[in-house]
Simulated scan of single mutants.
Amino acid sequence: MSVKGRQYPKTRDGAPLVVFDFDHTLYDGDSGSHLFAWLIRRSWWRRLLSLPMLPVFLPLVAFLPTRRFGVSAFVWAGTVGFHRLKELDKLIDRYVATHAEEIRRRLLPIGIEALHRHRAAGDRVVVATGAPPELARAILAFVAHEDVPVVGTDVGPRLGGLGARRHCHNEMKMTMLREAGFRDEVAIAYSDSSADLPLLRAARKPVVVNPKPSRIAMFRRVLPAGTPILNWGCRKRGGDAVSPASAG
Rank of each mutant, 00 (worst) to 15 (best):
Q7F: 15
A120C: 05
F69E: 11
R105N: 08
T129A: 05
F182S: 05
G81H: 03
A37C: 05
N231Q: 09
L197E: 09
S194G: 15
R235C: 10
E134P: 07
A97Y: 01
R46M: 00
L108E: 02
A97M: 04
L162V: 12
P213E: 06
R117M: 02
A131M: 02
R201D: 06
S194L: 06
A121G: 04
G122E: 08
T227C: 14
H83D: 12
V96G: 00
P198K: 00
C234H: 08
R46L: 08
A189E: 00
T98R: 10
T98Q: 13
L58N: 06
L85N: 10
C168T: 09
G130R: 08
D196K: 08
E102F: 03
L200W: 07
A128H: 08
Q7C: 15
I139A: 10
D89K: 08
T66V: 04
F36E: 03
V80A: 03
M53H: 13
D28R: 06
I188R: 14
A120T: 05
S2M: 15
R166F: 09
F69M: 12
G160R: 03
R104H: 07
Y190Q: 09
V242Q: 09
E146P: 00
T66R: 01
L60M: 07
V56M: 07
L223I: 11
L199M: 10
G160E: 11
P55Y: 03
A164R: 05
T98D: 12
A77R: 00
I229H: 07
N231K: 04
L60Y: 12
R106N: 01
R105E: 11
E171P: 12
F36Y: 04
R94H: 09
G161I: 02
D93E: 14
M176K: 02
W76T: 00
F57S: 02
A247N: 01
V75F: 02
V222C: 13
R178G: 12
M1P: 15
S243N: 13
G181L: 10
R204K: 13
P59F: 01
D28H: 02
R47G: 14
L64G: 06
T98E: 13
D240R: 15
M176L: 04
T153R: 02
L17N: 03
L140S: 01
A195D: 13
G156Y: 06
R166M: 06
W38Y: 05
G111Y: 04
D28W: 04
Y190C: 02
G239M: 09
A241W: 14
L51G: 02
V56W: 15
I92S: 02
G161V: 11
L115W: 06
A131I: 07
G156C: 08
V148G: 01
P132K: 13
F82P: 06
R68M: 05
G156F: 13
D93S: 14
Y27F: 11
P55N: 03
L230Y: 09
P213W: 11
T79Q: 01
L135E: 10
